[in-house]
């Protein structure tokens, strides 16, 4: 758990540093602001299907099988630099504190802890006074010990879209955002399956998050 915390802190720091470099360049154009967000994220399964069971005794059919990250909290640090009056570049980095759960037939079990880090660059457009939409690309990383990750890429490209509202609450600038992410997932272990029948081609994983944020400083012009 301690190493996960360190990774979260490092990732957040990297996000801020990443922000600072282009931020300086863009500040004279449209300003700069930093936002901290927290929320929860759900995910579609990493592995889903039917076990083929090549050596199963007669009468034992295939079973449904899935391994899914559970509903989990995430934290995000984001920075924005204005490009045009209603358009800004957002750089964000986040960490999800999750756990993998397996289900097979009537059995369910904990596969192990799972940390998910992501960093995304996106364009954010303001729609009217309070609403905004956002879309961009980045990288995502899964940190887990389970054998299914053996031979998976350390970093995978991720597509992110989001929409939300910006509000004033007691003098603070806050936001409520819905975010969706999509990325491919596959691993050598999964493709081979070791003969287990739990064998899968690369697939796409979708993550959906609800986030509440607060602008910590700066301001877009």
């Amino acid at each position: 758990m301690e190493s996960v915390m360190w990774r979260a802190a490092t990732l957040s720091l990297v996000g801020l540093v990443w922000l600072a470099v282009p931020g300086a360049a863009w500040a004279q154009v449209g300003g700069l602001e930093v936002e901290a967000r927290a929320g929860v994220v759900v995910s579609t399964p990493l592995v889903e299907g039917a076990a083929a069971l090549p050596a199963a005794p007669a009468g034992e059919g295939a079973q449904t099988f899935r391994v899914t990250p559970v509903l989990a909290p995430l934290v995000v640090v984001a920075g924005r630099a204005g490009l045009e009056p209603n358009l800004s570049l957002e750089l964000s980095a986040g960490w999800t504190f999750s756990r993998l759960e397996g289900r097979q037939g009537g059995e369910a079990w904990s596969v192990g802890d799972l940390g998910i880090g992501h960093a995304v660059a996106s364009l954010r457009r303001r729609m009217g006074e309070r609403l905004h939409v956002r879309g961009g690309f980045g990288l995502i990383h899964y940190r887990a010990d389970a054998g299914v990750f053996e031979g998976s890429p350390r970093l995978m490209p991720v597509l992110e879209v989001g929409a939300g509202a910006d509000l004033e609450l007691g003098g603070a600038r806050v936001s409520l955002t819905g975010v969706g992410q999509a990325h491919s997932f596959g691993s050598t272990a999964l493709r081979g399956g070791g003969g287990s029948g739990i064998r899968g081609e690369d697939g796409t994983v979708y993550r959906f998050a609800l986030q509440a944020g607060v602008v910590l400083g700066g301001g877009l012009r």
Binding site: G151, S152, L155, M156, T188, R191, G192
Partner: peptide, 29 residues
């Protein structure tokens, strides 16, 4: 100028699939 480096990064992060040799399970009953 913003999008090009991001696209290059996304392509670079892709991994070519490799399929290890399969093995037959023996009878465990």
């Amino acid at each position: 100028r913003l999008v090009l480096p991001l696209a290059a990064l996304a392509v670079a992060a892709c991994d070519a699939p490799t399929i290890p040799p399969e093995a037959e399970a023996y009878d465990f009953t």
